[in-house]
Amino acid sequence: MSGSANEEYIIEFREVTKVYPLPAGDVVALDGITLEIHPGEFIAIMGPSGSGKSTLLNLMGFLDTPTAGSLFIKGRDVGGMSDEELTRLRRDHIGFIFQQFNLLPLLTALENVQFPLILKTGSQEHLEQARRVLAAMALEEPLFSHKPSELSGGQQQRVAIARALVNDPEVLLADEPTGNLDTRTGTAIMELLVKLNHDQGKTIIMVTHDPNIARYAHRVIRIVDGRISPAEGDPPPEA
């Protein structure tokens, strides 16, 4: 915990350890991770299951806090923040994209996109913004009023990305964003993410175990047994 945070990084891990206490003994999910992410980076996190990549993503999404070490967002230390503050960070700075889309089944596509906006502004008057973001995801207007169950996987993921983007966060966290899609749709979604990264400068951090998907990233971080493997920074082998 030495030195002051560097505001140049959007997210910075310093000696971060995460331990889950279990009755059978403590499980060390992350073991002294130090990692800096610059604004505008497109990063893929890879690793075998149980390696700690989900834990890493949860920490980056402020769903969890480190057991030891420090975690900074834009130079602000996340440690010691209350649940309310962490929730606000998630709302304003992070956009989540899930493998299973995780749209709210009771709301229409447009309402799903509107939801984070309402959380942030407390008003339902920003309908136009939600509409614009959703339209930018190449979802046809007639589908806006459909419930998620009436949409295809690809359409659902577009709605989910629109939901992640609507509050204009700096960081998009994607957990296997193409895992539930066929190759063609997956490719379209990946191209959409690349475009967001390229055109809007969104920092994208994506967990995947598909090397073909990881190829879209600028940098691949490999996690093995809770540590970053030395191969970090290397381009994916297939590239």
């Binding site: 999404g61 929730t87 606000r88 998630r90 709302r91 304003d92 984070p116």
Partner: peptide, 16 residues
């Protein structure tokens, strides 16, 4: 439960 997890993760406060 899952839905609650989703809305909490995208920034819904406990009180909400």
């Amino acid at each position: 439960i899952k839905e609650i997890g989703v809305i909490r993760s995208i920034g819904t406060q406990k009180k909400e």
